[in-house]
Amino acid sequence: RLYEREDHKGLMMELSEDCPSIQDRFHLSEIRSLHVLEGCWVLYELPNYRGRQYLLRPQEYRRCQDWGAMDAKAGSLRRV
């Protein structure tokens, strides 16, 4: 689950498959919190699986710093 605000607030989007462009699919370029329910995912800073990568394991991420990012920029997401 992807959230537009910290602490799992605001608009929530659910994802169960790879997403090459978060902007195209959800009209957002920033994700401020996440909740990974199962499996491991890689969040990429840019669309089409480019830029900085962040490995996400099943857990709650209340803010972008929790997954190691300096800002909430999110371009794509892929399951590993």
Rank of each mutant, 00 (worst) to 15 (best):
R1I: 15
R1S: 01
R1W: 07
L2V: 04
L2S: 02
Y3F: 09
Y3C: 04
E4L: 08
E4V: 08
E4W: 03
R5E: 10
R5A: 08
R5V: 07
R5K: 15
E6Y: 04
E6S: 06
K9C: 12
K9T: 11
L11I: 12
L11E: 14
M12G: 08
M12W: 10
M12K: 06
M12C: 08
M12V: 12
M12E: 07
M13S: 07
L15N: 05
L15V: 15
L15P: 00
S16I: 12
S16C: 12
S16D: 14
E17T: 09
E17C: 11
E17N: 06
E17P: 01
E17H: 05
E17S: 11
D18W: 00
D18N: 13
C19F: 00
C19P: 01
C19L: 04
P20I: 06
S21G: 05
I22H: 03
I22S: 00
I22A: 03
I22G: 01
Q23S: 11
Q23A: 13
D24T: 10
D24N: 10
D24L: 08
D24I: 04
D24S: 13
R25W: 11
R25N: 06
R25Y: 06
R25G: 05
F26Y: 06
H27E: 12
H27I: 03
L28A: 11
L28Q: 08
S29R: 14
E30F: 09
E30A: 11
I31H: 01
I31Q: 00
R32T: 03
R32N: 11
R32V: 02
R32Y: 07
R32H: 15
R32M: 07
S33C: 03
S33A: 05
L34W: 06
H35N: 12
H35G: 02
V36S: 00
V36M: 03
L37M: 11
L37Q: 09
L37Y: 08
E38K: 13
C40S: 15
C40Y: 08
W41R: 05
L43R: 00
Y44F: 13
E45N: 01
E45Q: 10
P47V: 05
P47Y: 01
N48V: 01
Y49V: 00
R50C: 14
R50L: 13
R50F: 07
G51C: 04
G51L: 02
G51V: 01
R52W: 06
Q53R: 12
Q53P: 11
Q53T: 10
Q53C: 10
Y54I: 07
Y54A: 01
L55M: 14
L55C: 09
L55W: 12
L55R: 14
R57N: 15
R57F: 13
R57I: 05
R57G: 11
R57Y: 06
P58F: 01
P58N: 09
P58T: 12
P58L: 00
P58G: 03
Q59H: 09
E60V: 12
E60H: 10
E60K: 10
E60M: 11
Y61F: 09
R62D: 05
R62M: 15
R62W: 13
R62Y: 09
R63M: 08
Q65H: 09
Q65C: 09
W67R: 03
G68E: 02
G68V: 00
G68P: 03
A69S: 13
A69C: 05
A69R: 00
A69M: 02
A69D: 04
M70F: 09
M70D: 15
D71W: 08
D71K: 12
A72L: 02
A74N: 04
A74S: 08
A74Q: 02
A74P: 03
G75C: 06
L77C: 08
L77F: 08
